[in-house]
Design a protein around this nucleic acid. Structure first.
Lengths: 200, 200
DNA sequence: AGACCAAACGGACTGCGGTCCGCTTAGTAT
DNA sequence: ATACTAAGCGGACCGCAGTCCGTTTGGTCT
């Protein structure tokens, strides 16, 4: 028994070998660059594998599927966003009144969702399902609603509040119906008022 | 000029040749059967072409893409639903109070969306975009909201009301979070109350 | 250092969505 | 009936997602 674990705290799920980690980063970097220099469609598994200088099988080993890869790309910015909510400056971060935070949440979600619309679409189910993203946002909204003294089935009210900010809905409104972002945001604020029960 | 148009009213977009119509039906029937006897995944373009006894190219000529084929399958039940709303029995159809109709709308949408969840998912964008479906429902909700004396940006309020009934959201709630349908419906009724501004 | 093995790797291979283009046929004009 | 043409047809062909399996390599134990 000569295990040199300095932190044998939680049972390690499997530490990941060093070459594996290197390849993961190389792949993510390659994919990111492909998205920026071309488009999300250009991110083919062969292309990203070649760009990262690894075999195709490796890409699938790391990310399971193309959708998984897209989700991984999203995960990065999603994590930043979570940090901004948990410990960033107000009004998005802590320190502002719940209502102000809720408004900031709406605006922020609206913008980032539209910004990453392509990636989200291509991530398909993985984007929604890796609900490290989704469930964090939902939790935050539930928390704010509770702070605002809203009564009722909070999980469902939170869903109702977030649903119009989901990518497919926004996509439809912006790309097809041609609504502009400010109007959509105003509509969302109105919705929030009605749900929370504010006069103003 | 010996055109024998009995109804030259609106300029015919292109009447569709008889063999084409026959093949369209054969393809739809074959696809439908594949869905029922196997699953939506089993609906391969090659498979449906073979089952209908036509070439693969024909399938794409008719339906543009796999998503288009799925959308066409959906379109059928969607049309029935529209008929039920426009001229079916109350409370879904005309004849009931607006609030009752709205409640019936919610329940009905919830059920049919879940029923066709697979097809909708596989139809991808085509399902949303062929908004013969979507825009009809949106119009109906706007109409009911107006009847109920709701003031505000009705198109956006309608969207807010329908968004939680969209397939991806419901899918997440039912399949992943494990919520049961009655609770979701109750939550939607609550949402409608808040948006409409009803006491009860 | 050497041995051992589980994890990782790579690329050939499969199946499906989608395109292309030369052939066939339904409908029409004469 | 015959000729004409545009719409329709079919299936070979292509690119990409995803799988499989023989080979390599990082980590560890002695």
């Amino acid at each position: 028994m000569s295990e040199h674990h300095l932190l044998p705290l939680v049972d390690a799920p499997t530490p990941e070998r060093r070459d594996a980690a290197r390849n993961r980063e190389a792949l993510l970097r390659a994919a990111q660059e492909l998205v920026e220099r071309c488009s999300a469609d250009a991110v083919t598994m062969d292309a990203v594998a070649a760009a990262a200088g690894v075999g195709k099988g490796t890409v699938f080993r790391r990310f399971h599927s193309r959708e998984g890869l897209m989700a991984a790309l999203l995960d990065h910015s999603e994590t930043e966003w979570q940090a901004a909510v948990m410990s960033g400056p107000p009004p998005l971060g802590p320190g502002a009144e719940p209502w102000e935070r809720l408004m900031a949440f709406g605006r922020s979600r609206l913008e980032t969702t539209l910004l990453h619309a392509d990636l989200i679409r291509q991530a398909g189910r993985a984007g929604t399902r890796s609900f490290a993203a989704y469930s964090f946002a939902a939790m935050h909204v539930r928390y704010l609603l509770a702070q605002l003294g809203v009564t009722g089935d909070l999980p469902l009210l939170a869903t109702a509040l977030m649903a119009p900010l989901e990518a497919p809905v926004l996509d439809q409104q912006v790309r097809i119906e041609g609504l502009d972002v400010d109007r959509i945001h105003a509509g969302w604020v109105d919705l929030a008022r009605r749900i929370v029960g504010r006069r103003t």
